[in-house]
Design a protein around this nucleic acid. Structure first.
Lengths: 109, 109
DNA sequence: AAATATATCTTGCAATACAAGATAGTGGTG
DNA sequence: CACCACTATCTTGTATTGCAAGATATATTT
């Protein structure tokens, strides 16, 4: 215990989906965007495998484009399935966070 | 993805600590209490190993007491270290949930 | 005796965040 | 040209943790 890393499990993918929904974006830029929302920086070992996994699951689609500086960028966008998954995530997150707050504030149901 | 199980990682222990802080309680009862806050029921394979782990880390202490019906109950209470960890968890949770909501509602910082 | 409810523990599995390292292209500096 | 820095992605291996399944033990009820 005692670090944030375990708490990210299962919520990071939902956050990525939510950002990708705003428009095509590639991994490197995504990492920066996450920080702008308050996350402390992620390593590539976290983000790239997650994106590949989501692509394999058909939640996002990817197209390669030339970069002005560096190797090709892999732009991701949301599939229909991905939108559904995002909706589902938002519900699960709302439910979970409400429940945790119930526990912390001792509000029974 | 697509289930709640991964999202519980790293927050379940904080929830247990929060409930134990309210007063001595044993595992079996804890499971029921969690449900009263809105969690869907946990298996023993989830709760007991977690309690043992927290005991080993010195976050909770345990004493055995006779039960009116069944084998001895193992009552847990919070140690000083456990109280500190609970405080730390509450901060981490507050920060994380705020950040996730930032992402979902597209509020940059 | 047998079944039921209470109560805890153990073993093994699956999912996932992350560190560390490899690879590659582009531009600038000495 | 050689070297470095920045951009950009991928791969391998590790640690943590929730959970299913099964074992064990006691008390009450049928």
């Amino acid at each position: 215990m005692a670090d944030t890393t375990q708490m990210l499990k299962g919520i990071l993918d939902g956050c990525l989906l939510s950002i990708i929904k705003d428009g095509e974006i590639y991994g490197y830029e995504l990492a920066a965007r996450l920080e702008s929302y308050g996350f402390t920086s992620f390593s590539e070992g976290t983000i790239y495998p997650l994106l590949l996994r989501m692509q394999k699951e058909g939640l996002v689609s990817a197209t390669l484009r030339k970069s002005t500086a560096g190797p090709k960028r892999k732009y991701y966008s949301l599939t229909e399935k991905g939108e559904g998954e995002l909706e589902s995530f938002i519900k699960r997150w709302g439910q979970l966070s409400a429940t945790v707050n119930n526990v912390l504030n001792k509000r029974e149901m």
